[in-house]
Structures are given as structure tokens and as C-alpha cells.
Amino acid sequence: MGEYVKVESVEEAQRSLREETSATVVAGGQEVTLDLRQGSIDPRVLVDISDVDALNEIAHTADGLRVGSCVTYRDLERDKDIRAEYPTLVETIEGIAGPQVRNNGTLGGALCDADPVFDAPTVLLALDASVTLSADETARTVPLSEFYTSEGETVLADEELLTSILVPTPPARSAGAYRSMTPRQGDSTVAGVAVRLVRGDDTACRRARIALTNGAPMPRRVPSAEAALAGTTLDEEHIERAANAIRDALELPDDLRSASYRETVFGRLAGRAIRDARDGLPEVKP
């Protein structure tokens, strides 16, 4: 309980964090407010970075789409260019929670929360996204697949801010899909599978990325499933192997639904997502 500081620059944010031992960073503020309400955090200072210009920029660069960490889901939904280039990402975002939450929720906030039930981090993993973490003098780029530790935390150091996310330009001849199961619209996802396939010259699948929502204590890719598809014709046999690999890799968090149901659903959603992505590839013969 206490102070609320709205900073206007990344430097100012970092200074506040340096000077204050009990501080929490706020972007959209929604998760933080819930945590405050539940009493799981009680910082003296809330440092609000949502007005920092640099963190609200959207740029189409040579490397791909660079999104400031405070860009809201709504901003992304409204951007026609992003929708055209990253359809799976935008469709996924449209299904997140409800309009009010998307008006205020940010990609950066979602990533830093490290909640395995969030959909956006999963799709970003499948798109090979990376994040820029800025400390005072330095900044480092971390692939999103290395951003989470196995305990469900992030590698964000105390003095670091997540300032931007880079979503690489999709390779030519690639397609993605995200399939998930939620009890109701906008609920926490029970099981989700994101797939991105890159077609090869000789093979249907040169490279695969597969990531899971709520399949582990943190958002996570499944390298064994990716390997099961890479270099294959994406026929039913290989899809089945990938689905099995996903089931084997599951470390299911607690849930009202039984583990056996979720395993079954993960397997079925995986098959569906892979086929949907495959069908989006050019000139694929399964």
C-alpha cells in the first residue's frame, strides 16, 4: 500500500526500481491489482511504465515486428498490417478474456506474469519471438524459449525491464495455427497447442515449432514433438507421433479437469493444430 509513480522514460523507471526496495512494475495493472487484492504482493511503490513512449511503439523492421512491452492487446488487434502478417497471433489475441481486459492488457505484462494459462506467450513461442531486457546500461536479447525457468519464473533480473518483443518476420512458406480448449469464452485456457510449420524444398516440413498453454508450469515449447515433424511429410503417422510426444512431455498444473482428460485433449488439439497449419502451407501434399 502506498505510492503510485507514473514514469515517462525507461531510465526513470529503472531509477525508481533502483531506489526503491519494495516496488512492482505496472503496465496494464490488471494482474497486479488482482495480486494486491489477494494479498500475494504488497509493494510500497507501484511503478507505472504504461505511458512511456518507447514502450508503446510498434515497428515493422527488417528483422520482424518489434512491439513495445506496453502495447495493449487492443492496439495489436486494431493493426491491420499485423493481422495480415501474423494472423494466428491476432486471432489468438481476439480470444483473450474480454474487451475490457484487452483494452488494458499488454503483451509485456502477459509475458512477465509467467502464467501457463495465457495464450499469447504460447503463440509467441511458436513464432520464435525474443524479448529485450533492459538494465541501466545494458540490454540483452533473450529468446522467449529461454525466458522462462523450469520453476515457472522468468530470467528477468531485479533491475531489468522487459522493453520490447521481437516477432521475426515469418519465413516464406510458413503457416501457423493455435487450437485451445476453454470452458467458456475468455476463461483460463485448459489446454492449448500452438504450431508453426515451415515448408522445406524437398519435404513438407523443414522446421516445426510447437508450444503449449497450460501443459507445464510455464509457457513451453516441446522440442521432441518438433523433432517428430521436422523433415517429414506431415502425414498422419508423424502427426500421431508428435501428439504422443506432446502427451509425454506434459507436466500438468493443478486444474479442476482431470489429468487424463487434459492429456487426451492435448493430443487431439495437437493433431488438429498441426493439420490446420499444414493445410495453410503452400503446395503441401500430406
Binding site: 507514473k6 495493472g29 491489482t33 507501484l46 483494452n103
Partner: peptide, 19 residues
Amino acid sequence: LVDGDATKSCLVPVGKVAD
């Protein structure tokens, strides 16, 4: 509505809407 955007007021610390 916060600056015209529908927002759940139970999810906003009051300090956030100061300006």
C-alpha cells in the same frame, strides 16, 4: 471508461487513472 476505453475498475489501482 478510462479515456474512452472500457475498463474494469476493480482491476485498476486508483493512482493509475490520475491523469
